[in-house]
């Protein structure tokens, strides 16, 4: 992908925290209009990478290049509003920028929850809150939506629905989407490209190719592998318990 057209790109990002390498020379590009999904086990550095791309943290080495004036909509992994703060959905929608009620309503219609406009934020279910946060992000007319595990705390059907909604939003608005997920099977249909991260980029490509990639299978274990067709492959490196590349083999 040509760097000049990317909305955001990471080049050789390295992050070390208290002696551990969380990210090891990670490269990533998100082009306009594409859905990129970041998968990997817990502690693989997915959230760390997202925070760098959003400009919330600094890398120890490497750099993040963002298209100048990029409009980003962000859905954090967890948003809990303290019950002592009286906040309804309408106020949450206008948290960082003003929007008139018709625009707020339209954004809620787009994510399928227009009836929630005046509900207290604390009364929303997990799925409702994510939709409201999505609507909030949409009000900024984002070029890039960043979602950190958007389906956390949502039941299985709700998860599938949310991914379909994200895919529809992309089609309608043409915005790019970068999301973090645990579950490749669920996001498969709704993603253009998958990046499998475990401190370094293990493998990346279209979901179909990643699904059968030996690195992906090695990371997600024999159960996932058993669910898939038997095929011949060999690893070019292995992971030890900490997730580091055990055989000293560097890149891909």
């Amino acid at each position: 992908m040509a760097e000049s057209t990317a909305l955001v790109s990471a080049e050789h990002l390295v992050v070390r925290r208290s002696g551990k390498t969380l990210l090891d020379s990670v490269d990533l590009d998100v082009a306009p209009g594409e859905i990129v999904t970041l998968i990997g086990p817990n502690g693989a550095g997915k959230t760390t990478l997202v925070r760098l791309l959003l400009g919330l943290d600094r890398a120890d080495a490497g750099r993040v290049i963002r298209k100048p004036g990029l409009r980003v909509g962000y859905l954090p992994q967890r948003l809990q509003v303290d019950p002592v703060l009286p906040l309804d959905v309408s106020r949450l929608l206008t948290l960082t920028r003003r929007a008139r009620v018709p625009a707020q309503h339209a954004a809620l219609v787009e994510v399928g929850v227009p009836h929630l406009l005046h509900s207290p934020v604390q009364s929303l279910s997990g799925g409702e809150l994510q939709r409201v946060l999505l609507a909030r992000a949409l009000l900024a007319d984002p070029e890039l939506l960043v979602l950190d595990e958007p389906t956390q705390g949502i039941d299985f059907t709700g998860q599938a629905e949310l991914y379909r909604l994200i895919a529809r939003l992309r089609e309608r608005r043409g915005c790019a989407v970068l999301m973090v997920s645990h579950d490749l099977h669920l996001v498969m249909a709704a993603t253009d490209r998958v990046i499998c991260l475990n401190h370094h980029v293990c493998c990346h490509g279209e979901p179909e190719s990643v699904r059968v990639h030996p690195e992906y299978l090695a990371l997600f274990g024999p159960k996932v592998a058993a669910d898939l067709a038997v095929y011949a492959h060999h690893h070019d490196h292995a992971h030890d318990l900490s997730g580091a590349v055990a055989d000293g083999h560097e890149g891909h």
Binding site: Y74, P76, L79, L95, T96
Partner: peptide
């Protein structure tokens, strides 16, 4: 409400 959201 959310410091990271605001910062982002």
């Amino acid at each position: 409400v959310h410091a990271d959201l605001a910062a982002a």
